[in-house]
Amino acid sequence: MRIWFLLLMVISISFGIWETVDAVFFTPGIFDVAESYYFEFPLYAYFGFSFWGGLALLFALMTRKEWGYPLAFTYIIINFAVALLIGVVNILDETFMLKYLLAIAPPSERDIGFIAEYVAAPSTQLRAKVGLIVILLPSAYYLWLVRRNREYFCN
């Protein structure tokens, strides 16, 4: 059970760190999208926390630091909150997904018309709503897992 917990935490943290590196170095266009929603500053803060918080959490997991427990909790809750926020914005504003996909697709490979068509399709809109519900489940599971392994951080 403990190995499972550690494995999932490492995967989750690696994903958080990679997300930051990818956004900053490979798809900086998402900051333009964030700016159009006046969300650029919180996004930088989020990525900063994802990256440095992730590294700190990895360190805490390796050395079984006591402060790792609240950090793990905060890390999951913040990631969950951002995912929830993006999901809600996606449902409320139809152009959000279009802006996001246009920002992350390299101009040499993208077909703007096809992306617009894909986003406007009713099935995509439905998928976005279902995806929002689905995304909540792993977060809840992670929180339960951290709570269950609280004693792991008490070295």
Binding site: E94, L98, G113, A116, A120
Partner: peptide, 21 residues
């Protein structure tokens, strides 16, 4: 112009998204 093509193909919802964009 991409939106214009979509409009010409009667894909109005997709065209609307691009105009709004």
């Amino acid at each position: 112009y991409n939106a214009k093509i979509l409009f010409g193909e009667r894909k109005y919802d997709a065209a609307k998204l691009l105009y709004q964009f």
